[in-house]
């Protein structure tokens, strides 16, 4: 486990040294959400209705954007080889990497979401639902996305391909999360949706690191 811990620490340090890594997806998140009022309708009542969905779609795209680089550098500079050589569990390593990814993408997105709520006239009752759905849902995005990132890490045009592979898998998260925010906005209960997100998170925590670990081995170039 010592290499897993060291890798988590090193990746956080790397993110601190290269702020673009976590700041660029955040700015992208902000800009995408700002496009909707301009493209569709700036009327507050209309925006209030779609705010939850728009914020979630933007969060999903921002996550995808930052996923592409999750394993790429590690494959190219030989870190992957060292993980395999270390004899430590790839399950733990992929879990650690997904955790780091969430810390630098999902967590800041969650923290910044109230700002977007204001811009899109999200009903006041829905803020907590937005926050909680992002807090529970974005780790699922990181975990599932890490599988795609591991599969495409050594491909040159991996970014677009990654989106193709992963977006259909994101559909359930999107459906339940956006619905939680919408229902909170119209004053209805949304704990069922959050519970579903929680169940998905549990499942993703248990299973995706296996798939990501297996996929990582494919990137050992010959």
């Amino acid at each position: 486990m010592s290499l897993v811990r060291a890798t988590v620490r090193r990746d956080l340090l790397l993110a601190a040294r290269n702020p673009g890594e976590w700041a660029n997806p955040l700015m992208f998140f902000l800009m995408v959400a700002a496009l909707f009022p301009m493209a569709v309708d700036p009327n507050p009542e209309f925006l209030a209705k779609i705010a939850g969905g728009v914020i979630w779609v933007a969060a999903l795209l921002a996550t995808l954007l930052s996923l592409d680089s999750l394993y790429r550098a590690d494959v190219e500079d030989g870190s992957l080889e060292q993980w395999l050589a270390s004899g430590e569990s790839l399950y733990a390593m992929s879990l650690g990497k997904a955790l780091v990814h969430w810390c630098i993408s999902g967590l800041p997105l969650t923290l910044m979401s109230p700002l977007l709520g204001v811009m899109l006239h999200l009903p006041e009752e829905a803020y907590f639902a937005l926050f909680i759905s992002l807090a529970v849902g974005t780790p699922v995005l990181s975990l599932l996305g890490a599988v795609g990132a591991a599969l495409t890490a050594s491909l040159r045009s991996g970014g677009l391909l990654l989106a193709l592979l992963i977006l259909p898998l994101y559909v359930p998260v999107l459906i339940f999360a956006a619905s939680a925010v919408y229902h909170a906005g119209i004053g209805m209960a949304y704990n069922g949706q959050v519970a579903m997100l929680g169940a998905m998170l549990a499942l993703a925590l248990a299973l995706t690191p296996f798939a990501a670990g297996a996929a990582l081995k494919l990137n050992l170039s010959r």
């Binding site: 790397l14 870190s79 050589a85 004899g87």
Partner: peptide, 30 residues
């Protein structure tokens, strides 16, 4: 076995934006 053999590929797993010390710390974490 992994604990008793040291493997170094032709790629050195050195991260450019980290210092020499930080890199060595990661490389020898085990």
């Amino acid at each position: 076995y992994a604990g008793n053999r040291l493997y170094m590929g032709h790629l050195s797993a050195v991260k450019k934006s980290l210092t020499a010390l930080e890199n060595l710390r990661w490389l020898t974490a085990q």
